[in-house]
Simulated assay, not measured.
Amino acid sequence: MSDTIRTATDTKVQDACSLNGQPLSNRSVKDIIESFTDGLGLAAEVTKSRLDFRTKFIAEHESYRSIQGTEIRVCHNLQECQDRDSIEIDCYIHGLGGNLEQFEPLLRLDDISGRYFISMDLPGFGKSQDCTTYDMNIITDTIYSTWKNIINDTTNDSFDLLNCKINIIGHSMGCYIALHLFQKLSQEEPDINSLILMAPPKINIPQLRKGYTLTQFGLYTLSLFPAIFDYYRTKFDQSKGLQSSGIRDFFHNDDPNDINLLYRKLWQYQNNIQIKSRSIIGYLRNWEPLNWDVINETVSMYRDSHRLRIMILGGDGDHITPYEGVQQFFNAFTDNKDNRLECLKDCGHNICFDAPEEICSIFQNDIFQK
Protein backbone atom coordinates (compact mmCIF):
# COMPACT_ATOMS: atom_id res chain seq x y z
CA MET A 1 0.00 0.00 0.00
CA SER A 2 1.40 3.43 -0.92
CA ASP A 3 2.13 6.04 1.75
CA THR A 4 -0.57 8.30 0.28
CA ILE A 5 -3.28 5.63 0.52
CA ARG A 6 -2.12 4.56 4.00
CA THR A 7 -2.32 8.16 5.24
CA ALA A 8 -5.83 8.55 3.84
CA THR A 9 -6.87 5.25 5.40
CA ASP A 10 -5.40 6.15 8.77
CA THR A 11 -7.18 9.51 8.71
CA LYS A 12 -10.55 7.85 8.11
CA VAL A 13 -9.93 5.38 10.93
CA GLN A 14 -8.89 8.15 13.30
CA ASP A 15 -11.97 10.20 12.44
CA ALA A 16 -14.25 7.17 12.91
CA CYS A 17 -12.79 6.43 16.34
CA SER A 18 -12.59 10.00 17.62
CA LEU A 19 -15.25 10.92 20.17
CA ASN A 20 -14.53 14.65 20.16
CA GLY A 21 -17.78 16.60 19.99
CA GLN A 22 -19.92 13.46 19.86
CA PRO A 23 -21.83 13.43 23.21
CA LEU A 24 -25.25 15.06 22.87
CA SER A 25 -24.72 16.71 26.26
CA ASN A 26 -22.08 18.88 24.52
CA ARG A 27 -19.67 18.07 27.32
CA SER A 28 -16.16 16.94 26.47
CA VAL A 29 -15.28 13.29 26.91
CA LYS A 30 -12.72 14.27 29.54
CA ASP A 31 -15.29 16.28 31.54
CA ILE A 32 -17.77 13.40 31.37
CA ILE A 33 -15.24 10.90 32.69
CA GLU A 34 -14.14 13.17 35.53
CA SER A 35 -17.74 13.80 36.61
CA PHE A 36 -18.43 10.17 37.56
CA THR A 37 -17.30 8.23 40.60
CA ASP A 38 -16.81 4.52 40.05
CA GLY A 39 -18.40 2.09 42.47
CA LEU A 40 -21.69 1.61 44.25
CA GLY A 41 -23.42 4.81 43.05
CA LEU A 42 -22.28 4.70 39.43
CA ALA A 43 -25.51 3.15 38.12
CA ALA A 44 -27.62 5.99 39.51
CA GLU A 45 -25.18 8.61 38.20
CA VAL A 46 -25.09 7.38 34.60
CA THR A 47 -28.87 6.90 34.58
CA LYS A 48 -29.30 10.61 35.32
CA SER A 49 -26.84 11.62 32.59
CA ARG A 50 -28.12 9.79 29.53
CA LEU A 51 -27.23 12.57 27.08
CA ASP A 52 -23.58 12.03 27.99
CA PHE A 53 -23.84 8.62 26.32
CA ARG A 54 -25.96 9.57 23.32
CA THR A 55 -23.73 10.43 20.38
CA LYS A 56 -24.60 12.84 17.62
CA PHE A 57 -23.81 10.31 14.91
CA ILE A 58 -26.22 7.69 16.28
CA ALA A 59 -28.91 10.31 16.93
CA GLU A 60 -28.65 11.61 13.36
CA HIS A 61 -29.05 8.15 11.81
CA GLU A 62 -31.46 6.33 14.13
CA SER A 63 -35.19 5.82 13.72
CA TYR A 64 -37.87 3.30 14.69
CA ARG A 65 -39.70 0.75 12.55
CA SER A 66 -42.75 -1.31 13.37
CA ILE A 67 -41.82 -4.84 12.29
CA GLN A 68 -44.33 -7.62 12.83
CA GLY A 69 -45.93 -5.65 15.66
CA THR A 70 -42.64 -4.83 17.41
CA GLU A 71 -41.01 -1.38 17.54
CA ILE A 72 -37.42 -1.81 16.40
CA ARG A 73 -34.72 0.84 16.73
CA VAL A 74 -32.60 1.01 13.60
CA CYS A 75 -29.59 3.01 12.50
CA HIS A 76 -28.67 3.39 8.82
CA ASN A 77 -27.48 5.85 6.19
CA LEU A 78 -29.48 4.61 3.20
CA GLN A 79 -31.23 7.96 3.07
CA GLU A 80 -27.95 9.21 1.58
CA CYS A 81 -28.06 6.64 -1.22
CA GLN A 82 -27.96 8.12 -4.70
CA ASP A 83 -27.12 5.11 -6.88
CA ARG A 84 -30.17 2.88 -7.22
CA ASP A 85 -28.65 0.42 -9.70
CA SER A 86 -26.34 -1.48 -7.41
CA ILE A 87 -25.44 -0.80 -3.80
CA GLU A 88 -23.43 -2.66 -1.20
CA ILE A 89 -24.69 -2.65 2.38
CA ASP A 90 -22.91 -3.68 5.57
CA CYS A 91 -25.56 -5.27 7.81
CA TYR A 92 -24.71 -5.62 11.51
CA ILE A 93 -26.17 -8.04 14.10
CA HIS A 94 -25.19 -7.60 17.76
CA GLY A 95 -24.95 -10.24 20.45
CA LEU A 96 -26.77 -11.27 23.64
CA GLY A 97 -27.59 -8.18 25.69
CA GLY A 98 -25.95 -5.92 23.11
CA ASN A 99 -27.24 -3.08 20.98
CA LEU A 100 -26.44 -1.29 17.73
CA GLU A 101 -24.21 1.24 19.50
CA GLN A 102 -21.53 -1.39 20.06
CA PHE A 103 -20.71 -1.10 16.33
CA GLU A 104 -20.47 2.69 16.46
CA PRO A 105 -16.83 3.04 15.26
CA LEU A 106 -17.53 0.77 12.26
CA LEU A 107 -20.79 2.54 11.43
CA ARG A 108 -18.99 5.86 11.37
CA LEU A 109 -16.19 4.37 9.27
CA ASP A 110 -18.81 3.13 6.79
CA ASP A 111 -20.30 6.60 6.57
CA ILE A 112 -16.95 8.37 6.23
CA SER A 113 -15.93 5.89 3.51
CA GLY A 114 -19.11 6.45 1.49
CA ARG A 115 -20.46 2.99 2.26
CA TYR A 116 -23.98 2.05 3.34
CA PHE A 117 -24.87 0.35 6.59
CA ILE A 118 -27.84 -0.99 8.52
CA SER A 119 -27.72 -1.82 12.22
CA MET A 120 -30.53 -2.46 14.69
CA ASP A 121 -31.34 -3.29 18.28
CA LEU A 122 -32.62 -6.85 18.36
CA PRO A 123 -36.09 -7.24 19.93
CA GLY A 124 -35.88 -6.94 23.71
CA PHE A 125 -32.46 -5.25 23.70
CA GLY A 126 -31.26 -1.67 23.48
CA LYS A 127 -34.23 0.57 22.76
CA SER A 128 -36.23 -1.99 20.77
CA GLN A 129 -39.51 -3.24 22.17
CA ASP A 130 -39.92 -6.62 23.83
CA CYS A 131 -41.59 -9.33 21.82
CA THR A 132 -43.73 -12.30 22.82
CA THR A 133 -41.18 -14.91 21.76
CA TYR A 134 -37.44 -14.98 21.23
CA ASP A 135 -37.41 -18.02 18.99
CA MET A 136 -34.20 -17.61 17.01
CA ASN A 137 -35.93 -18.40 13.72
CA ILE A 138 -38.49 -15.67 14.37
CA ILE A 139 -35.71 -13.24 15.34
CA THR A 140 -33.99 -14.09 12.05
CA ASP A 141 -37.21 -13.33 10.16
CA THR A 142 -37.52 -10.04 12.06
CA ILE A 143 -34.01 -8.99 11.04
CA TYR A 144 -34.68 -9.89 7.41
CA SER A 145 -37.99 -7.99 7.45
CA THR A 146 -36.32 -4.96 9.04
CA TRP A 147 -33.64 -4.83 6.37
CA LYS A 148 -36.22 -5.10 3.60
CA ASN A 149 -38.41 -2.46 5.24
CA ILE A 150 -35.56 0.05 5.41
CA ILE A 151 -34.36 -0.60 1.87
CA ASN A 152 -37.83 -0.41 0.31
CA ASP A 153 -38.82 2.67 2.32
CA THR A 154 -35.68 4.69 1.63
CA THR A 155 -35.79 3.88 -2.09
CA ASN A 156 -39.54 4.48 -2.54
CA ASP A 157 -40.19 0.77 -3.12
CA SER A 158 -38.11 0.90 -6.30
CA PHE A 159 -35.38 -1.31 -4.86
CA ASP A 160 -35.22 -4.57 -3.00
CA LEU A 161 -32.85 -6.45 -0.73
CA LEU A 162 -32.34 -9.03 -3.46
CA ASN A 163 -30.89 -6.32 -5.72
CA CYS A 164 -28.23 -5.41 -3.15
CA LYS A 165 -24.81 -6.74 -2.39
CA ILE A 166 -24.65 -7.35 1.34
CA ASN A 167 -22.04 -8.10 3.95
CA ILE A 168 -23.48 -9.82 7.04
CA ILE A 169 -21.54 -8.88 10.16
CA GLY A 170 -22.28 -10.61 13.46
CA HIS A 171 -20.85 -10.27 16.94
CA SER A 172 -20.98 -13.01 19.59
CA MET A 173 -24.52 -14.48 19.57
CA GLY A 174 -25.02 -12.42 16.44
CA CYS A 175 -22.65 -14.83 14.68
CA TYR A 176 -25.11 -17.66 15.24
CA ILE A 177 -27.98 -15.50 14.01
CA ALA A 178 -25.89 -14.40 11.02
CA LEU A 179 -25.36 -18.01 9.95
CA HIS A 180 -29.05 -18.85 10.37
CA LEU A 181 -29.82 -15.77 8.29
CA PHE A 182 -27.26 -16.76 5.65
CA GLN A 183 -28.99 -20.12 5.21
CA LYS A 184 -32.31 -18.31 4.72
CA LEU A 185 -30.96 -15.68 2.31
CA SER A 186 -28.93 -18.14 0.25
CA GLN A 187 -32.19 -19.76 -0.86
CA GLU A 188 -33.47 -16.45 -2.20
CA GLU A 189 -30.36 -15.71 -4.26
CA PRO A 190 -29.23 -12.28 -3.03
CA ASP A 191 -25.59 -11.34 -3.55
CA ILE A 192 -23.91 -12.01 -0.20
CA ASN A 193 -20.33 -10.81 -0.47
CA SER A 194 -19.09 -11.59 3.01
CA LEU A 195 -19.81 -13.25 6.31
CA ILE A 196 -17.80 -11.41 8.96
CA LEU A 197 -18.10 -13.07 12.36
CA MET A 198 -16.56 -11.37 15.38
CA ALA A 199 -15.96 -13.14 18.70
CA PRO A 200 -18.21 -16.10 17.87
CA PRO A 201 -19.36 -18.49 20.64
CA LYS A 202 -18.38 -22.16 20.72
CA ILE A 203 -19.34 -24.14 17.63
CA ASN A 204 -21.78 -26.07 19.81
CA ILE A 205 -23.13 -25.24 23.26
CA PRO A 206 -24.60 -28.49 24.61
CA GLN A 207 -25.96 -26.84 27.77
CA LEU A 208 -28.41 -24.87 25.60
CA ARG A 209 -29.79 -27.91 23.79
CA LYS A 210 -33.54 -28.25 24.18
CA GLY A 211 -33.01 -31.68 25.74
CA TYR A 212 -30.48 -30.52 28.34
CA THR A 213 -32.87 -30.81 31.29
CA LEU A 214 -30.92 -29.07 34.08
CA THR A 215 -30.15 -25.88 32.14
CA GLN A 216 -33.61 -25.72 30.60
CA PHE A 217 -35.23 -26.15 34.02
CA GLY A 218 -33.09 -23.34 35.43
CA LEU A 219 -33.91 -21.02 32.53
CA TYR A 220 -37.60 -21.90 32.78
CA THR A 221 -37.60 -21.06 36.49
CA LEU A 222 -35.85 -17.74 35.83
CA SER A 223 -38.36 -16.97 33.07
CA LEU A 224 -41.13 -17.23 35.68
CA PHE A 225 -39.23 -15.09 38.17
CA PRO A 226 -36.87 -12.80 36.18
CA ALA A 227 -36.75 -10.45 39.18
CA ILE A 228 -34.40 -12.99 40.82
CA PHE A 229 -31.84 -12.47 38.06
CA ASP A 230 -32.47 -8.70 38.13
CA TYR A 231 -31.80 -8.64 41.87
CA TYR A 232 -28.54 -10.57 41.51
CA ARG A 233 -27.34 -8.34 38.66
CA THR A 234 -28.22 -5.12 40.48
CA LYS A 235 -27.08 -5.94 44.01
CA PHE A 236 -24.14 -8.25 43.48
CA ASP A 237 -22.70 -7.31 40.11
CA GLN A 238 -23.63 -3.88 38.75
CA SER A 239 -23.03 -2.35 42.18
CA LYS A 240 -19.32 -2.89 41.45
CA GLY A 241 -19.42 -0.24 38.72
CA LEU A 242 -16.68 -0.62 36.14
CA GLN A 243 -15.50 -3.75 37.96
CA SER A 244 -18.81 -5.50 37.19
CA SER A 245 -18.66 -8.57 34.99
CA GLY A 246 -20.22 -6.76 32.02
CA ILE A 247 -17.19 -4.47 31.87
CA ARG A 248 -14.41 -6.54 33.44
CA ASP A 249 -15.03 -9.57 31.21
CA PHE A 250 -15.78 -7.61 28.03
CA PHE A 251 -12.72 -5.33 28.01
CA HIS A 252 -9.12 -6.42 28.03
CA ASN A 253 -7.51 -2.99 27.92
CA ASP A 254 -7.23 -0.95 31.10
CA ASP A 255 -5.22 2.18 30.31
CA PRO A 256 -6.25 4.89 32.83
CA ASN A 257 -4.92 7.57 30.48
CA ASP A 258 -7.02 6.52 27.47
CA ILE A 259 -10.04 8.81 27.86
CA ASN A 260 -11.84 7.32 24.84
CA LEU A 261 -11.52 3.84 26.35
CA LEU A 262 -12.79 5.06 29.72
CA TYR A 263 -15.72 6.80 28.03
CA ARG A 264 -16.61 3.65 26.10
CA LYS A 265 -16.52 1.62 29.32
CA LEU A 266 -18.95 4.07 30.92
CA TRP A 267 -21.07 3.96 27.77
CA GLN A 268 -21.13 0.16 27.87
CA TYR A 269 -21.95 0.21 31.59
CA GLN A 270 -24.81 2.65 31.01
CA ASN A 271 -26.23 0.28 28.39
CA ASN A 272 -25.65 -2.78 30.59
CA ILE A 273 -27.81 -1.56 33.44
CA GLN A 274 -30.74 -1.20 31.02
CA ILE A 275 -30.62 -4.81 29.79
CA LYS A 276 -33.72 -6.76 30.78
CA SER A 277 -33.10 -10.15 32.38
CA ARG A 278 -36.33 -11.37 30.81
CA SER A 279 -34.89 -10.82 27.33
CA ILE A 280 -31.59 -12.57 28.10
CA ILE A 281 -33.44 -15.58 29.47
CA GLY A 282 -35.79 -15.61 26.46
CA TYR A 283 -32.94 -15.76 23.97
CA LEU A 284 -31.12 -18.49 25.90
CA ARG A 285 -34.27 -20.61 26.22
CA ASN A 286 -34.81 -20.38 22.46
CA TRP A 287 -31.19 -20.85 21.39
CA GLU A 288 -31.01 -22.60 18.04
CA PRO A 289 -27.86 -24.74 17.56
CA LEU A 290 -25.93 -24.65 14.33
CA ASN A 291 -26.11 -27.63 12.02
CA TRP A 292 -22.59 -27.52 10.63
CA ASP A 293 -23.26 -30.15 7.96
CA VAL A 294 -26.05 -27.97 6.55
CA ILE A 295 -23.99 -24.79 6.89
CA ASN A 296 -21.01 -26.25 5.04
CA GLU A 297 -23.24 -27.68 2.34
CA THR A 298 -24.91 -24.28 1.94
CA VAL A 299 -21.56 -22.47 1.77
CA SER A 300 -20.23 -24.86 -0.88
CA MET A 301 -23.39 -24.64 -2.98
CA TYR A 302 -23.46 -20.86 -2.72
CA ARG A 303 -19.83 -20.63 -3.76
CA ASP A 304 -20.62 -22.57 -6.92
CA SER A 305 -22.19 -19.40 -8.33
CA HIS A 306 -21.00 -16.59 -6.05
CA ARG A 307 -17.88 -15.36 -4.40
CA LEU A 308 -18.34 -15.55 -0.65
CA ARG A 309 -15.67 -14.37 1.76
CA ILE A 310 -15.74 -15.58 5.34
CA MET A 311 -13.71 -13.72 7.95
CA ILE A 312 -13.58 -14.80 11.60
CA LEU A 313 -12.14 -12.39 14.16
CA GLY A 314 -11.37 -12.82 17.84
CA GLY A 315 -9.40 -11.13 20.58
CA ASP A 316 -6.57 -12.89 22.36
CA GLY A 317 -7.75 -11.35 25.64
CA ASP A 318 -11.39 -12.38 25.33
CA HIS A 319 -12.71 -14.20 28.42
CA ILE A 320 -16.26 -14.60 27.08
CA THR A 321 -15.39 -16.35 23.82
CA PRO A 322 -11.70 -17.33 24.20
CA TYR A 323 -9.59 -17.30 21.07
CA GLU A 324 -9.15 -21.08 21.11
CA GLY A 325 -12.89 -21.40 20.56
CA VAL A 326 -12.75 -18.80 17.81
CA GLN A 327 -10.14 -20.92 16.03
CA GLN A 328 -12.41 -23.97 16.35
CA PHE A 329 -15.26 -21.93 14.89
CA PHE A 330 -13.05 -21.03 11.93
CA ASN A 331 -12.00 -24.66 11.45
CA ALA A 332 -15.65 -25.78 11.45
CA PHE A 333 -15.96 -24.40 7.90
CA THR A 334 -14.77 -27.21 5.65
CA ASP A 335 -14.72 -25.11 2.47
CA ASN A 336 -11.91 -22.71 3.33
CA LYS A 337 -10.81 -21.44 -0.09
CA ASP A 338 -11.75 -17.82 0.70
CA ASN A 339 -11.77 -17.84 4.50
CA ARG A 340 -9.59 -15.84 6.86
CA LEU A 341 -8.93 -15.93 10.59
CA GLU A 342 -7.77 -12.74 12.31
CA CYS A 343 -6.49 -12.42 15.88
CA LEU A 344 -6.69 -8.99 17.50
CA LYS A 345 -3.88 -8.56 19.98
CA ASP A 346 -4.70 -7.25 23.45
CA CYS A 347 -8.42 -7.22 22.74
CA GLY A 348 -11.39 -8.46 24.74
CA HIS A 349 -14.95 -9.44 23.80
CA ASN A 350 -16.34 -6.01 22.96
CA ILE A 351 -14.07 -5.70 19.95
CA CYS A 352 -15.35 -2.39 18.58
CA PHE A 353 -15.06 -0.62 21.95
CA ASP A 354 -11.92 -2.32 23.27
CA ALA A 355 -9.86 -2.04 20.08
CA PRO A 356 -11.72 0.39 17.77
CA GLU A 357 -8.68 1.49 15.77
CA GLU A 358 -7.58 -2.09 15.12
CA ILE A 359 -10.98 -3.37 13.98
CA CYS A 360 -11.58 -0.28 11.84
CA SER A 361 -8.17 -0.73 10.18
CA ILE A 362 -8.99 -4.36 9.37
CA PHE A 363 -12.31 -3.39 7.80
CA GLN A 364 -10.82 -0.45 5.91
CA ASN A 365 -7.88 -2.41 4.51
CA ASP A 366 -9.29 -5.93 4.10
CA ILE A 367 -13.06 -5.60 3.73
CA PHE A 368 -13.69 -2.24 2.10
CA GLN A 369 -10.81 -2.55 -0.39
CA LYS A 370 -11.85 -5.94 -1.82
Rank of each mutant, 00 (worst) to 15 (best):
residue 327 Q to L: 13
residue 202 K to R: 15
residue 246 G to E: 07
residue 143 I to V: 13
residue 270 Q to A: 12
residue 4 T to I: 14
residue 229 F to H: 05
residue 246 G to L: 00
residue 261 L to K: 08
residue 189 E to Q: 14
residue 341 L to E: 05
residue 25 S to V: 09
residue 323 Y to Q: 07
residue 368 F to R: 00
residue 1 M to C: 06
residue 215 T to R: 10
residue 366 D to F: 12
residue 28 S to V: 03
residue 37 T to I: 12
residue 201 P to D: 03
residue 159 F to I: 11
residue 185 L to T: 07
residue 283 Y to N: 02
residue 180 H to F: 04
residue 246 G to A: 04
residue 356 P to E: 05
residue 145 S to E: 15
residue 308 L to W: 04
residue 176 Y to R: 11
residue 113 S to Y: 08
residue 88 E to Q: 14
residue 204 N to L: 09
residue 101 E to Y: 13
residue 253 N to K: 13
residue 188 E to Q: 15
residue 12 K to N: 14
residue 83 D to P: 07
residue 235 K to W: 09
residue 10 D to C: 08
residue 125 F to R: 04
residue 303 R to H: 04
residue 45 E to C: 03
residue 217 F to V: 01
residue 205 I to Q: 10
residue 147 W to C: 11
residue 352 C to F: 11
residue 227 A to G: 06
residue 7 T to I: 07
residue 323 Y to I: 14
residue 328 Q to F: 01
residue 314 G to V: 03
residue 344 L to K: 10
residue 107 L to E: 00
residue 168 I to Y: 07
residue 28 S to D: 07
residue 39 G to V: 09
residue 139 I to L: 14
residue 196 I to D: 08
residue 185 L to H: 08
residue 68 Q to Y: 13
residue 276 K to L: 03
residue 99 N to I: 00
residue 278 R to A: 15
residue 230 D to E: 14
residue 113 S to F: 05
residue 102 Q to I: 13
residue 369 Q to D: 13
residue 176 Y to N: 12
residue 13 V to R: 11
residue 178 A to H: 05
residue 209 R to D: 15
residue 198 M to N: 10
residue 59 A to K: 11
residue 312 I to T: 09
residue 76 H to R: 05
residue 84 R to D: 05
residue 344 L to N: 10
residue 288 E to L: 09
residue 8 A to Q: 15
residue 163 N to R: 09
residue 103 F to W: 09
residue 257 N to T: 04
residue 278 R to I: 11
residue 108 R to G: 02
residue 20 N to R: 11
residue 342 E to D: 01
residue 202 K to P: 01
residue 124 G to S: 01
residue 25 S to P: 07
residue 17 C to Y: 05
residue 192 I to H: 05
residue 291 N to Q: 10
residue 207 Q to T: 09
residue 253 N to T: 00
residue 64 Y to H: 12
residue 218 G to R: 04
residue 235 K to E: 13
residue 245 S to K: 15
residue 141 D to N: 06
residue 160 D to T: 05
residue 128 S to L: 07
residue 361 S to Q: 14
residue 343 C to L: 15
residue 260 N to Y: 15
residue 369 Q to S: 15
residue 261 L to N: 07
residue 169 I to E: 10
residue 41 G to P: 01
residue 335 D to M: 01
residue 43 A to G: 12
residue 312 I to G: 02
residue 24 L to D: 02
residue 225 F to R: 07
residue 316 D to R: 14
residue 100 L to Q: 07
residue 96 L to Y: 06
residue 317 G to N: 08
residue 47 T to R: 14
residue 81 C to M: 13
residue 201 P to R: 10
residue 1 M to T: 01
residue 200 P to R: 02
residue 144 Y to N: 14
residue 90 D to M: 04
residue 68 Q to W: 11
residue 297 E to F: 07
residue 308 L to A: 06
residue 245 S to V: 12
residue 338 D to A: 12
residue 357 E to D: 11
residue 19 L to G: 00
residue 183 Q to S: 14
residue 144 Y to P: 06
residue 55 T to G: 06
residue 123 P to F: 06
residue 366 D to T: 02
residue 224 L to V: 03
residue 344 L to R: 06
residue 157 D to V: 06
residue 315 G to R: 12
residue 32 I to L: 10
residue 320 I to M: 13
